[in-house]
């Protein structure tokens, strides 16, 4: 069990800046995120899109913002637990026991939920018949590519994942790539490569088709697809891969006994605590009168939530407000020499 002052759920900009504020006031934290990288929506949804409303930064991309925030909290050496998700909270003696999907446990007086619009999960096929093969022959990510050797693999999607895997698996498998329109959103070089492989009959490319049904008795046998013009087609398949991007779901947060209002968590605006003592919510996931879903609002919320955490983490101490320009204690925490 890891003992800490605060567990932050979500490593997006809001969670990262809250961690910075915790470090400044001398608290420890552990940060959990179910993506495999730091940055949240900034890195997953718009790493290259410029942002124009970060105070004092006229223009930066989601990736640049993330990198700067990571740099800013470096002195504190906080631990990140990526590819993991907080699953369960249990209250015990004024503290919370936090359990993750991968079996990690934390003991903490404070939890800060900075979960954005929820955790990212792959979008699945809309057809119910695909569910029975989910995880066996209907897959949304590739963990071990050797299972596809000499098999018929049908890949759906038009982004980089679909294109890259179509190219890679065409070396050892019979690949059919299916997309709902003629244009692809993946890199042009990959699109060119796929078209070249199509000419060499190494990839079968079908566009303007979408999935209609998945067929098989126990084992997957084929997929039925539907053209925009209404015609259907059936393709033999040992494996079906779907790459439709990620969706965001609140997931286990819904089970923690928090008040929820339209997928957001109501908080007070003094310290962003929820209806549960020691659980705070900041960033896109929280709501209050006047709430703006801006990154800068998340920074403000994180700063106040950090002070709220201090009360429970150091019940015998009085919090003293200090400026980073003037405080030697803070400079020590930042590892700056006098």
């Amino acid at each position: 069990m890891i003992n800490t002052d605060v567990v932050i759920v979500g490593a997006g900009p809001t969670g990262l800046f809250c961690a910075h504020q915790l470090g400044i006031i001398g608290l420890k934290c552990e940060i959990v995120d179910n993506l495999d990288k730091i940055g949240g929506q900034c890195i997953e949804l718009y790493p290259d899109k410029p942002i124009y409303d970060i105070p004092a930064i006229p223009e930066c991309t989601g990736e640049e913002l993330t990198n700067n925030l990571i740099e800013q909290i470096k002195p504190f050496n906080f631990n990140f637990h990526l590819n993991d998700r907080v699953q369960e909270l249990k209250n015990e003696n004024e503290k919370w026991i936090v359990k993750t999907l991968n079996g990690k446990e934390f003991l903490t007086p404070n939890i800060v939920i900075a979960g954005g619009v929820g955790s990212f999960e792959p979008r699945k096929f809309p057809t119910k018949s695909a569910d029975q093969f989910d995880g066996k022959s209907v897959l949304y990510s590739v963990k071990d590519k050797t299972i596809f050797k000499d098999k018929s693999v049908v890949i759906f999607g038009g982004g980089d994942s679909a294109l890259d895997w179509a190219i890679e698996l065409s070396k050892t498998s019979k690949v059919t790539l299916i997309h709902r329109r003629d244009e692809f959103r993946g890199a042009q070089s990959s699109v060119d490569k796929v078209k070249e492989l199509q000419k060499q009959n190494k990839i079968e490319l079908l566009t303007k088709y979408s999935i209609k049904d998945v067929k098989g008795n126990g084992n997957l046998e084929s997929v039925e697809i539907k053209h925009d013009d209404g015609n259907n087609k059936e393709i033999k398949a040992d494996y079906v891969l779907g790459f439709f991007g990620l969706i965001m779901q609140l997931g286990p947060i819904l089970d923690w006994g928090l008040n929820i209002d339209k997928k957001t968590i109501p908080v007070n605006t003094e310290n962003f605590e929820t209806n549960k003592k020691g659980i705070f919510a900041i960033g896109d996931i929280c709501t209050y009168p006047g709430k703006l879903k801006l990154i800068l609002s998340g920074f403000h919320e994180g700063a106040l939530a950090a002070r709220g955490c201090f009360k429970y983490a150091r019940p015998d101490e009085k919090y003293r407000f200090e400026f980073t320009t003037a405080s030697n204690t803070i400079k020590d925490r930042l590892g700056l020499k006098e």
């Binding site: 997309h179 244009e183 925009d228 990620l246």
Partner: peptide
């Protein structure tokens, strides 16, 4: 917009 629609639930023409 079409790039995002690729990632929608059951997109159609």
């Amino acid at each position: 917009e079409d790039d995002m629609l690729d990632q929608a639930f059951e997109p159609k023409s």
